[in-house]
Design a protein around this nucleic acid. Structure first.
Lengths: 248, 248
DNA sequence: CCCGATTTGTACGTATGTATC
DNA sequence: CGATACATACGTACAAATCGG
């Protein structure tokens, strides 16, 4: 039995044995890799894709879910589906400059301050070499490049020494600049430990990651020009948006 | 109504509102953290735990599954359930000595050669700075400490220069010693890139990981004393058994 | 090299308490 | 109140891997 098909635009092949969502996913993946949709760009909306392929929106959504699972696209509620950028090379060396790193890759860095608290916490206090129960400033941030969240970091500073740091941080979104305003022109890493695990729900939310994604955890101890520890920092990078480069 | 209980050994509290598997899991976790079962040791068998807690084997299995999910124990078919060791600090610097690293942590290193092949592969050839289509030796290994698999690595060498390398590798299980036998007394890292992702099924098998676990992927380019690239290596570490330490 | 004992992994089935509609 | 779904707990059997003799 011959099947009459509208040959003008045969976007999907019904009854070919290949499910529609798979055909559509492969088609979009092909268009992404060939450059029709460049990294960082917005895909057509689900309704537009629905119309283009002549299928139900559920089918398009399943295709996009597959691509999101593969890490090729990222769907954001209320905005649309974006093509993921190539992983950003992030140098892990003596120098620590998030903004410089991101700008060097030709992307626009942004730091957003989530919250500040004065806390007493034994672990970071010990690593900073301070007496037990010294009050610390704990700062929570999210950093992004080209609007794509890259990392979620928690930092601890001695509260007495860095009083008011959060104001500068809030204004500039840059740790380097906030340090500069406190008379710290230069600082470097003393220790760095790297591990990895699944992102927890809070990280999924803030980094706009689907469930089951991995974060690279970088625990760093930073010191001023005299080698005195000033910052303990735990950064969680979205592992499929960054790879760490050790420059030895 | 008073419930008569055998007070001689009340290992679990039935009808307390807390499920038996949870009580047992917490009990075993407590005994692990307090040192009753030291890292690397064998837990009592499921039958013994069944008898001790007076429950069905399924219930004990569920408790162990919870602890395995948390990364505290690791069950091996035919052998038993082991208490996981603390993550091994693994230095990522100029020097590359797996055996030294592991021995420095007081554990017994072991390298097992999985396979050797002569291949032509564009990517590693380019990184080694060799002409296109140069034959390469590709070597697959698994390394372990105290019998616990830590990493799975793939290495590429120029086949002409390192002919017969696999024999030495097979005998010693050590890349350093195999290099030494080829007149390379010293070598160091040129580049290192670190990423992370979920372990694929083959890696789960070889690294004895449950599904859903994470591997740290370290891509390294190693060079001889003259700075000439000699080895491209991709190592996948079980992320909950090592953390990488960058010594800058 | 095989054999049997031990141990974990998997698959059935059954019963019961609890929460929800 | 009944119907339904779900988690919990127990029973049994067998498969697969390991280890010692």
């Amino acid at each position: 039995m011959a099947v009459p098909i509208d040959l003008d635009r045969p976007p999907v092949d019904r009854g070919s044995g290949v499910s529609l969502w798979r055909q559509i996913a492969e088609r979009i993946e092909c268009e992404i890799t060939t450059g029709a949709y460049p990294p960082g760009s917005l895909l057509p909306s689900e309704s537009e894709l629905t119309e283009r392929f002549g299928v139900n929106r559920h089918t398009v959504r399943r295709s996009l879910a597959v691509l999101a699972e593969k890490g090729l696209v990222r769907s954001v509620k209320g905005r649309g589906s974006f093509v993921e950028e190539a992983p950003l090379p992030y140098p892990i060396g003596r120098r620590v400059r998030f903004s410089e790193n991101v700008m060097a890759a030709g992307r626009a860095p942004r730091g957003r301050l989530l919250g500040v608290a004065t806390v007493v916490d034994a672990e970071p206090t010990r690593r900073l070499g301070l007496p037990a129960r010294t009050p610390l400033l704990r700062i929570e941030m999210v950093s992004s490049a080209n609007g794509v969240p890259l990392s979620r970091s928690t930092s601890w500073f001695e509260a007495a020494r860095f009083a008011g740091l959060e104001a500068e941080l809030q204004r500039t979104g840059s740790v380097s600049r906030a340090f500069a305003a406190h008379g710290i022109a230069d600082y470097a890493r003393l220790e760095t430990a790297i591990s990895a695990r699944l992102a927890d729900p809070a990280e999924q939310e803030l980094l706009e990651l689907p469930t089951g994604r991995v974060v690279l955890v970088v625990e760093a101890l930073n010191a001023d020009a005299d080698g005195r520890p000033i910052q303990v920092q735990r950064t969680r990078f979205a592992a499929d948006r960054v790879h760490l480069v050790v420059n030895s």
